[in-house]
Every structure is written in structure tokens, then in C-alpha cells.
Amino acid sequence: MLDDFMIRATLAGIGVALAAAPLGCFVVWRRMAYFGDATAHAAILGVALSLTFEVSIFAGALAVALMMALAVTLLSRRGHAMDTLLGALSHSALAFGLVAVSFLSGVRIDLMAYLFGDILAVSRGDLAVIWGGAALVVALIGWRWSALLTATLNEELAYASRINPKREQLILTLALAITVAVAIKVVGVLLIAAMLIIPAAAARNLARTPESMALIAAAIGAASAVVGLRSAFVFDTPAGPTIVCVAATVFALFSLLGSRGQRAR
């Protein structure tokens, strides 16, 4: 069954969607959308470094994404304005990454594949990495769910409940780095943030509890992967962007439905 590239691609897309859904909810709730961007852009630098030192691309991207996420967290605690900080780090990481790639004269590297993903080229090994990473992220978020939720609502409330919000933030950061590293192959660096945010934002219109929002986001993400891949096949469009387009359409539809529902109430 895994011999068919379309089936491998679909499974890869679903894997990323499942990990991105609960994480994406926290990214939306905590207003850290650009945090996802910054981490993802840094991953390009990770790709360049791992090609230079001939280590696995997953490991390189993970390490640099993690360092980026930690740097942002530490600098923001020192009182830098978050949006300026993210704007500076995110785009400079991308620029440094692109420059670093150009030094790799010996290796031919298809940069487009990392910027926009190449889901149709997913191998069995990639699939194992994606599903392994996704399972790890879902397990991590599931394990810390209430603590993360409490820390997201109010830091003092968390402290009073014997929860350390800084530790929870670190767990979220770690999960984000893993997701970015895993998703590079599927949707690419430029569209990872979309897969995090759009399904969660679409789910907001239907959900009444945090848990239902995460589940609906997972369903929307997985459905977008399946429909997007099929559409890409039929219309001969790039696969990663098509998946994001489908998710964006769902978001637009649900937003219209949601606002109409609000008026009826």
C-alpha cells in the first residue's frame, strides 16, 4: 500500500495536520502566530547546516528551529517588543539560511523543495519520521494539556495551582520546533505557519470548549490534506500550497457561517 506515492503523501499530510492542530490552537490562543514563522524560517538555516555537515536534515532543522525558539523566548523576557523581535529574527534567519545554502557549491539542492515542500516525494523513511514526530507532539501536548491551558489563561493562576508557566512555555516551544522540522518536507518552510493557524482559526467558529477546538482543527487539517492532494493531482497544481488553499477556503466558509450563527443568536 505504501508503494503508491499518493498514499504516502496523504498519510504524511494527515500526520502533520494531526500534530499541528492542538499546537496550532495554542499558537492562536497565545497570539504567537509569528513565533511559528520565525521558527520555520530558521529551519532553512538548519537545512543548509545539515547539508554542510552531512547530518540528517530533520536533525539539523530541529536543532536550529529549537535554538531560534529558545532565543526568541529568552529575548522577549528581557523586554524586547515581541513583534519587532520576531520580525528581525524571522527574516534574518531566512536570509542567513538562503546565503548559507548558496555556499554549498558541491551539493545541488532544490531550495524550492524546502521553501514550499515536496510532499509527493515523501519516502517511507520520511513517513516514519513524520508520524513519529507527530505522535511525540500529540503525546507531549496531551500530557501537559491542562497545565498549558491554565498557563495560557493566566500566569498567576498557574502559579497558584503549582504550575510553572515558564516550563509550560518551554514545552510548547519544543513541540513547535518538532512540528516545524517534521513538516518541512510536506508543506515547506513558508507554509508551515498556515497549517498551524488556519485549521485552528477555522475550528474556533464551531467549538465551545478548548478540547473540541483542537479536535475540529485536526479534522479540518486532515480533510484539507486529503482534498488538497486530490485537487493538486487533478488540476496539476503544487501540492503543499493546494493543501493550504483548501484549508483557507474552509476557514472562509466557517467564518461566514460563524458570523451568521452569531447574528441569529
Binding site: A147, E156, E211, S212
Partner: peptide
């Protein structure tokens, strides 16, 4: 056992949560 009532608590409009779920938070 400490019951803590914070000064103000801002719940982001993107976070759906019922009163019941909030009471069961921790």
C-alpha cells in the same frame, strides 16, 4: 489549599471555553 482570584483575567476571544470547563481547569 489556596484559592486564588486574579486581578483580572483576559480570555482571548479565540479561546472558546464554557464556565463548566473553566471551573474544571486544573
Amino acid at each position: 489549599r489556596i484559592g486564588y482570584v486574579p486581578q483580572k483575567l483576559h480570555i482571548d476571544p479565540t479561546l472558546p471555553i464554557t464556565v463548566e470547563r473553566f471551573l474544571r481547569l486544573t
